[in-house]
Design a protein around this nucleic acid. Structure first.
Lengths: 109, 109
DNA sequence: AATATATTAAACTAAACGGTTGACAATGAT
DNA sequence: ATCATTGTCAACCGTTTAGTTTAATATATT
């Protein structure tokens, strides 16, 4: 209904369900960073961070471009936009319901 | 930074990372429903659906009230609002970045 | 050619997940 | 009292997760 294309949505929500990953996304909204630069910011092995980045890449929220031996990560905001819109749809449903309720009480008066 | 209170955010995003759960939320934005009424809509055991509902309750997205032997589930839209706002913050960061880029090219001209 | 750096891959552990089955408790109907 | 309905709980199975450690690859530097 609102929810075709659900695999993609699953992956984006899942990617955002972890604080480290949300933090990485936040860093990348400010500045493109390499895997190493990102890893230094977290109390975790490089490999651990690399895995988190991979989850973000699979979700489409992050895109990587190779530059020599380093790999730059950048935020792909279109995907977040889509999710943001989805949540707005849910919210809209709810607000329509509240309006219907208001109307009901109006009539009753 | 933007992300205090992260346990709650983790749980909400996680709750929304599954199609069945998103579907339940969607149903509940339209109408309060009992566990059984919800379960009938899915090709899954009652217990399975009950577990999904529990995930939603833990996240705060759904609230339950007992009525005799039935239990009504209702959508708690405030939590979704908070998440929606969080995503908007991410988006805002990104757009500020785009603006900064525009400015940069303006100056260059 | 040898060594250092950046990143991924593989193998593993502990925990959590999605889903099932079976048993149980509480409430409602006959 | 008995029986059906609503819902939860506990145990289980197979899969996936977060994270580690230990290689392995590819690119730079000397």
């Amino acid at each position: 209904m609102v929810d075709e294309n659900s695999g993609f949505i699953d992956r984006v929500f899942y990617a955002l369900s972890n604080t480290t990953r949300r933090n990485i996304v936040l860093e990348l909204t400010k500045k493109d960073l390499t895997v190493n630069e990102l890893a230094k910011k977290y109390d975790m092995t490089l490999q651990g961070v690399s895995k988190h980045i991979h989850v973000l890449v699979r979700s489409g929220l992050v895109v990587q471009t190779k530059q020599g031996r380093t790999k730059y990560c950048k935020f792909n905001y279109q995907h977040l936009s889509k999710i943001s819109e989805l949540l707005e749809q849910y919210r809209a449903f709810w607000e329509r319901r509240l309006d219907a309720l208001d109307e009901y009480f109006e009539k009753k008066k």
